[in-house]
Design a binder for these strands. Structure first.
Lengths: 342, 342
DNA sequence: TTGACTTATGATTGCGCAATCATTAACCAA
DNA sequence: TTGGTTAATGATTGCGCAATCATAAGTCAA
């Protein structure tokens, strides 16, 4: 194994050029645009690079070319296990590519998002991945004018800034309601926390699906701006039962709330799924280990992350290409917590 | 709100300098070393920066100074929910600082780790955070000679490269065994997967604690090099029971395996905790929602991440300082899955 | 007063690369 | 031959900043 001291004053392109008997710019070209260099020169350069352990200086490259290999990623939360799956997909996709990822967490703050967008764009990123379709006007304007390609993830809707990959929160909620109806539940409630734009769309889907059947009751909807936690789920179930004791099922905005509702139901001696059906959203890993196992709407988080980066890399090389928004869909995982029939 | 087009050819230090009526280098200094600049000049510069929306060019800065504000983070896995907590701690700590984090995933491959260390060090990072104390000799040599401070996280042991923050895996395992003994279990088995160095130390602690009481039986230890999953936990419990049907408790290398063991026990009609006690390691969020709730050794993952970055930032400004390795300890969370007494 | 020292500021230079334009050689069609 | 074309290579330049050294003004002790 060749030992290369990473501290030693760096091997530069000029060193490689001398060793290969070519000029520095030929070295540069044979790395970035090998098709412009003769086979013979390319091989000599490759050998010299290998021999000297040359690693290009990213800062110098960025300064000279006014572009970087950094992909900016903006998420509203890192606490949320939803985004850790997305992250995993992105990092799996970035592995082995020249790109690197920089994460910005805007903590569900639109002004924080604006600030981060501004900061990231100044670094001339190779691309941006941002969560959601609902940026502020000024954020959206910055993204539209950005010199890099932009992928909006996690959602599905008209007029993305550029590229989009996600799923329809509305459709997921509709599918959940339909599943509950199939199981014979009719007085269905909704529990939601945070209520960011995607949660709002889930509520909209819920409302729509029930209204279409004349089963919607506004008092069966409880929401709070607080962040979702398991504990809050228990509390919200309490609120819901106080306001609408007749509910026979509840669609929870996410699995944390649903887990809390499940535990609270057990505490109150409410039988799940017989007396109360509980359905979550996202299908976190833990959900199928709950007792009873939690039904939930599975969301393609890993595939969104992976797909977003792959999409980005594809269009970086094909600037004129503008693929359709990708809808990866959702899937209702029917488990014991809603198994009233069959 | 001031609208600044992030695309427009960048506002440079020279522009700020002109606007403030000083030279460019004074602008540079009033950002990096404000104590060297008179109050008056500093205020004028600050006003000009604000007015022009100046953002320094990171690439140019890196090129000129041969250093960056990037902290390199090397983890063996992103799949593992263990590291997502660490990540969260790190990102919480980095927020609002000038530093940014770059993640490298070496997938439990020592040679992959070596490659990543070499690549990262070439970027002249402000610091490095690496998982574990057990790098290869050549990785260790590179880290020791690095021009930046290095924090090794997740473990506890003699002679860290530089700084260290983590906990003793051995002690955690010993505590788990003692908990099981207290609950009256005596024929305790061990299930482990992956068996990276930290898992090895847990096994060592397990072995030691039982040997000290004359209760160790080698055939009660089952391990596999495969990666931990819930499914594998069920399989390993089967193997263990086949080899050592007398076991009355099992200490699992992590909570995924323990969850699998719990489910497999239910499938086989083995009563937990009466017939079989099950204790995990890490105390993932899901563990307390399992049925019966899983006892586990809680590890301070978030605090490690947060602490690592804080430690790093502290010593970056005080190059001579070399704090002791930090041991954040572990805590046995005794729950239903081991509650044979009390 | 002198010189030594401190504080505040500036001029110059170069970091390592890629953009741009220039040059050379080889080849072909007319 | 001539001019036109393409392929391969190189020379020069500057990206925006910080390191280095230089300078100017102010302070103080002897």
């Amino acid at each position: 194994m060749k030992e290369i001291d990473p501290k030693r004053s760096a091997v530069t392109m000029v060193d490689v050029a001398e060793a290969a008997g070519v000029s520095a710019i030929t070295v540069s070209r044979s790395i970035r645009r090998p098709e412009l260099v003769s086979e013979e020169a390319r091989l000599r350069v490759a050998a010299a690079i290998e021999r000297l352990g040359y690693v290009p200086d990213a800062a110098a490259s960025a300064l000279a070319s006014k572009r970087t290999d950094v992909v900016g990623l903006l998420v509203p939360s890192l606490t949320n296990s939803v985004f850790s799956e997305v992250l995993r997909g992105i990092y799996d996709a970035v592995e082995g590519t020249p790109y690197s990822v920089q994460i910005g967490n805007f903590r569900y703050s639109p002004s924080g998002e604006e600030r981060l967008i501004r900061t990231f764009l100044r670094q001339k990123p190779a691309g941006m991945i941002v969560a959601g379709l609902d940026q502020t006007d000024s954020s959206r304007a910055m993204l539209e004018q950005a010199e890099c390609r932009v992928v909006q993830i996690m959602d599905q809707g008209p007029k993305p800034v550029d590229l989009a990959i996600g799923f329809s929160h509305r459709d997921g909620a509709v599918a959940a309601v339909e599943h509950l109806l199939e199981q014979g539940y009719e007085r269905i409630g909704f529990m939601g926390a945070r209520m960011d734009p995607r949660s709002q769309r889930r509520l909209a889907g819920f409302t729509e699906a029930l209204k279409a059947r004349g089963l919607f009751e506004a008092r069966r909807v409880v929401t709070t701006p607080a962040a979702s936690t398991v504990g809050l789920g228990g509390q919200l179930l309490g609120d819901l039962l106080a306001r609408a004791p007749e509910v026979d099922a509840v669609f929870c905005n996410n699995d944390d709330l649903a887990a809390g509702a499940l535990l609270e139901a057990a505490r109150r001696g409410i039988e799940v799924p017989r007396q109360l059906g509980i359905c979550g959203f996202n299908d976190l890993e833990m959900s199928r280990f709950l007792n009873p196992a939690l039904s939930s709407v599975a969301t393609p988080r890993y595939r969104i992350g992976r797909g977003a980066l792959e999409l980005l890399m594809r269009v970086i090389d094909a600037p004129e290409e503008k693929p359709e928004a990708v809808d990866l869909g959702t899937e209702v995982k029917a488990r014991a917590s809603t198994a009233r029939r069959g």
